[in-house]
Design a protein around this nucleic acid. Structure first.
Lengths: 354, 354
DNA sequence: TTGTACGCGTTATCAC
DNA sequence: GTGATAACGCGTACAA
């Protein structure tokens, strides 16, 4: 079923009067040949226009250099940027990535994993939240998750606790009377989800500092309109209840922080001085907003790099004659960075807004 | 080099007293076996916990079901969403995607292509602008490009000409005295780049309608700060030169349209009625802006689907015993859609802004 | 309906 | 340093 059959080691061998073995060695251990013979073979490769076939190499060696990646979507900047950074590690590690988008469909996700296994991936990176880590662990292949429940598997996560703390600290440092945290997570006690750490970091800081605070958990659908309605409600309630008192608001992601900000600007023609605002993610919208939004940024490049590194370690272990599997999953934590922009730095704000 | 050697057709064959061939047929043409025997084999597969190995199948069949994708970046929503839609076609066509991000590095891109060829991809989708289509054509594999120079290869593009026309028409229909098109493309005559069609569509409409217009080509670096400076300059000049006269502004992408909008809102506390604004892309920022931005949207889902379809046709042709290559590359055109939002619909704008 | 024998292109093992 | 030969796991004429 092959139309123009490709040039093989056999062809090169005939053409050079070497054996296939020697041709193979030319690629995998060139120094074991004399320099002369290397050149002869190099010449032959050029003459015959040889193209390497890594599929055949896989079958013989068992090493695919494939890594599977399962992402919930590419709509959120967090995921697309993470994928970008993961793919970029090809330059350092050489692994090729087979990417699937699950869009929250659990069954599809299981099919994708089966397909990946059939292609003999050497490792798997999971960013989706649907399949429990217990089940992932049973795949018994090198695996790393990112920002999701990770009890039974290796993972890399942002230090969300620290992130919540940083946000609260920033707002408090500007003399806010009362701090609010707006989040759409419905079960703040599900400690398995790393993002919940933000809430606890925020709360613990406030408690320790004796800072007045309030948590606003609002159920919202995952649509812009729903977000907008919820934020409008919250804004209404806040102004009614707290008037001109200085309010520090920490919203659990930049998209929603931006919606809140836009409501303010549309209402007042500017951002009033009694509102301070911090988002989370450092997604592009936080910079592109009408007033650049202060935010807690995840170091996506670092997370991706650590995730792949952690995976590579496991994959290298697998290649040994007698692999020693990890007894305990490894969990890496990446520190977030605080980006102070105009929604908290009133000095900056006043200077450019008029 | 495999330490836990996997269950093979041979093992199943022994276990069931069939031949490997029969096992193979069980997968590729089940109906050629009796139902009884199918069940026997199914049972054996379960007993032995067989996992299929598609790599071996590839070597034997020559069909990898791999498609390569080369994307410039995932930072722009256009590309990440396009990739999302491309990957989603797995459900319909079953092709697996090997994805590389070039980040504008031409040499890296060539390496990626070589690597993809070594993995015997059956087709390639190119979204980058670096490598000329002449060179891509020489790969002589099924290939489709999206929104880039495409003289010698198959492609799918938005009808950019129509997009520019729609933008101009919308602005004119609201009685703008003069229309402006702001673009950062420096060589409006390079007809090879599809996006240039926007300019011509805009201009042709204005000319035909006797509509006063002006083109503003501004060189900008690819940074937010540079965009911001350029847009601030333009805004200053416009207000100086045209005062309160009604200005219709068509900006070549939503990111920059948003920057322009933000400058207006920061300056006036709202969007003045003598400015109308249309962007391009329908990227998330256009909806999330402080005032939702009217924009010309590319139908990314359709583009991706058509691109993969076009590729699949070529790949199917390759599988025939006597493939007939295309004599002329096929170019598909997808119509853009106009999204009317508050930056042009003053009625909407007034009602919610106060 | 089922089996035999060989091919796919490379790597691994052992010999020389 | 180099070569012969056997894997690797599956597909597929061709035969039965």
């Amino acid at each position: 079923m092959k139309w123009e059959k490709s040039v093989t080691f056999g062809d090169i061998a005939k053409h050079t009067n070497f054996s296939k073995t020697t041709i193979s060695r030319y690629f995998n251990d060139p120094d074991s040949l004399t320099v002369e013979n290397q050149q002869i073979i190099a010449q032959a490769l050029a003459d015959l226009n040889y193209k390497e076939n890594k599929v055949a190499r896989i079958l013989a060696s068992g090493r695919t250099e494939f890594v599977g990646v399962i992402v919930p979507n590419l709509f959120f900047h967090f995921y697309s940027e993470m994928l970008n950074q993961i793919l970029a590690t090809y330059e350092e590690f050489g692994y090729k990535f087979l990417v699937f988008i699950s869009n929250g469909q659990e069954e599809a996700e299981r099919r994708y994993i089966q397909e990946l296994m059939a292609y003999k991936i050497e490792g798997l990176i999971v960013l989706t939240h649907t399949i429990p880590s217990r089940e992932l662990a049973e795949l018994s292949i090198p695996l790393v998750t990112i920002e999701r429940e990770d009890r039974h598997v290796c993972s890399v996560n942002t230090d969300n606790y620290q992130g919540g703390r940083l946000a609260a600290e920033l707002l408090a440092s500007h003399g806010c009377e009362i701090l609010f945290h707006i989040n759409y997570l419905t079960a703040p006690d599900a400690k398995d989800v790393p993002a919940h750490g933000r809430i606890h970091g925020f709360v613990d800081y406030c408690k320790k500092q004796g800072q007045k605070y309030e948590l606003l958990f609002k159920e919202m659908e995952d649509t812009h309109e729903s977000f907008q309605r919820s934020m409008a409600d919250i804004l209404e309630n806040l102004t009614a209840a707290y008037g001109q008192r200085k309010k520090g608001i920490f919203i659990s992601n930049d998209t929603q922080a931006n919606i809140f900000l836009n409501l303010l600007v549309r209402k007042y023609g500017r951002m009033p001085d009694d509102f301070l605002l911090v988002g989370f993610d450092n997604s592009p919208i936080s910079r592109e907003a009408v007033i650049p939004i202060s935010t807690v940024g995840q170091q996506i490049d670092k997370i991706a790099y650590e995730a792949v590194s952690l995976l590579v370690e496991q994959m290298n272990e697998q290649k040994k004659r007698r692999p020693v599997p990890l007894t305990e999953p490894i969990h890496k934590i990446i520190t977030p960075v605080l980006l102070k922009r105009e929604t908290t730095e009133i000095g900056l704000r006043a200077q450019s807004f008029r």
